[in-house]
């Protein structure tokens, strides 16, 4: 199954992915409209610095953007008392209609990937972009200026990690 990965060598911690994610999950899907209408919710990915406090991007620190890993088995799915959080073709999906906001999943996700905001909000792999292809398939990937984010299997991502960074910036992807 395709999942999202972040290459910490490329991530500069600009948080463009966070904004794009928050905007993607609004009715208007437009930054200005969503701010004006107060639609903007929390992002479902968070840029974080390895070994440092959140958002305090240390010079030379390793920064990366993390969201839901779509685990299998998924601790959040085990914990869900309504069946809202469930697996679907390998993805971990929350059925917001069913979610009662009990936060059993928040307690159970070891990656802090779920935001409790009335309902359990997490990376849903952009269901409204299923028709799109390439870098536009996911809002965060499209927004990332350094091409740090990658969609694919981990084995494919390992190949990316093995490549030198500059080659990618010269437009091989």
């Amino acid at each position: 199954m395709e999942r999202l990965f972040c290459d910490p060598r490329r991530c500069v911690g600009c948080r463009a992915c966070e904004i794009a994610c928050a905007v993607e999950h609004t009715p208007s899907k437009d930054l200005f409209a969503s701010v004006l209408n107060g639609e903007l919710g929390p992002p479902r990915r968070r840029v974080q610095t390895v070994g440092a406090k959140p958002y305090r991007v240390a010079i030379g620190g390793v920064v990366l953007s993390l969201g839901c890993h779509h685990c299998d088995p998924a601790p959040c799915v085990d914990a869900c008392i309504t069946g809202a959080m469930h697996k679907e073709d390998g993805q971990t999906v929350c059925d917001l209609e069913k979610c009662v906001g009990c936060w059993m999943c928040v307690m159970s996700c070891p990656y802090g990937a779920i935001t409790p905001k009335v309902k359990a909000l997490k990376c849903d792999l952009c269901p409204d972009r299923q028709e799109k292809t390439g870098r536009s398939r996911y809002a965060c990937i499209e927004a990332c200026p350094t091409e740090a984010l990658f969609a694919g299997t981990f084995e494919e991502f390992q190949k990316v990690l093995a490549e030198p960074v500059t080659a990618v910036w010269e437009g091989t992807r």
Partner: peptide, 12 residues
């Protein structure tokens, strides 16, 4: 006491 949800802090 101030830890947020981010796992990054804990990766090392």
């Amino acid at each position: 006491l101030e830890l947020g949800p981010e796992l990054g802090r804990l990766l090392p």
